[in-house]
Design a protein around this nucleic acid. Sequence first.
DNA 1: CCCCCGGCAAGAGCAATGCTCTCGTTCTTG
DNA 2: CAAGAACGAGAGCATTGCTCTTGCCGGGGG
Lengths: 238, 238
Amino acid sequence: MTVIRGARERARSDVTAAIKEEARRRLAAEGAARLSLRGVARELGMVSSALYRYFPSRDELLTALIIDAYDAVGEAAERALDAGAGARPVARWTAVCRAVRDWALAHPHEYALIHGSPVPGYAAPQATVGPASRVGLALIAVVADAHAAGALRTSGPPVPEAVLRDVAALRERLGLPLPASVLAEAVAAWSQLFGLVGFEVFGQFERVIDARDAFFDHAAARLARLVGLEELEGDSGR
Amino acid sequence: MTVIRGARERARSDVTAAIKEEARRRLAAEGAARLSLRGVARELGMVSSALYRYFPSRDELLTALIIDAYDAVGEAAERALDAGAGARPVARWTAVCRAVRDWALAHPHEYALIHGSPVPGYAAPQATVGPASRVGLALIAVVADAHAAGALRTSGPPVPEAVLRDVAALRERLGLPLPASVLAEAVAAWSQLFGLVGFEVFGQFERVIDARDAFFDHAAARLARLVGLEELEGDSGR
DNA sequence: CCCCCGGCAAGAGCAATGCTCTCGTTCTTG
DNA sequence: CAAGAACGAGAGCATTGCTCTTGCCGGGGG
């Protein structure tokens, strides 16, 4: 599919990759706000204007990095998803959550790029929505598999009508045979997961929780049960 | 206590307030990244260097704005807490959550300032930790009052030992008679609330959930039940 | 085979930024 | 009342994103 057409194109993609690599390095070192085009150009032995042949603006470069970051965390989640294919649903869910958290802790600046404040005036380009949903889809996949295996508790407090409609449209788009109410809970849990991760990455748990691993695993498992995944006997309902 | 000593001090606090006000205006208009000292100075009819008499650096200005934002959202939460003094715990919890969300949606850039990516190299100064915990304390207050009223389900899946230790220390610091396990759940729910809010403010629910109000209320109520607040009959446990 | 057109890097330059330093002025205080 | 601190203005430095012009150089069409 990606046949190398000529030396010219190869050189172009090489340089593009080198720019992104160096940019990611500087990003990890000092954050998005301090990422300067001139800086990466300098490090690469080019002149700043040359970079504009590859990225039309600094924001475009950032967008590329954002997509890469979404893909990286999404891939981590999917790897955990696949690795836990046979496991019990709660364990599998927790593993996916942990993969996300571990990636975020290992790449805090990239995490900030995708789940922190959007850069300047910046509205997320359409190209980011696909990669952005990979983690959510991985979580939903856990639930869907559990549903198929009959390990899903589908009852719960009633979900508002309007939400059910939204979520039914989503189910349609995804082509999943999940009950709408469960999907609604999964979407909520998806966002809540990033609350847990964000607090930890941005240091809000400092001096509050020290045993972060245990805390996170416990919270992730509770989230799993909240969406209805297999419950161990005698843990829910007084 | 705060007696005005002389015209000089009064002028100083006036100017300081004007700077913060203008800065907040520009912050709301175009975000933290585009907030420039020169810009607010220009708008105030001063010269940029004069600003440095009031804030030693741009980051100090941002820190002041951060503290103000934490206080604003914390105050909103506390108002909801007080307003719901007699209400049933789940409703009161949900009201506090909604207050946080409404404030965040009304002030997205200030929200991004406090719960988005930390600025450059920036480690949260000690002065921010107090205001930063006001929302969390309001949530915990709901739980504590429910506990005192006997409307709290204190059983649940076992919380890991290490987490219990951390949380016991926290309870000590707060002087609250809450079971440690409940406090642990409350801390988790606190962070998860900001997952929900953040996703909405930063647009991750775009084209996924349209009925955001209903969705949020539902999710907040589920969070309330997760921490053990009064449950309506027949909604938990298959 | 050559040649020439298009992609490319370099450099200068513009407007803007954060921050520093100096210089008079003005208000506070001893 | 006079010394000293606080203050505003202005110039200046290094840096940033981005544009424009100028040449170079290599690969595909003649």
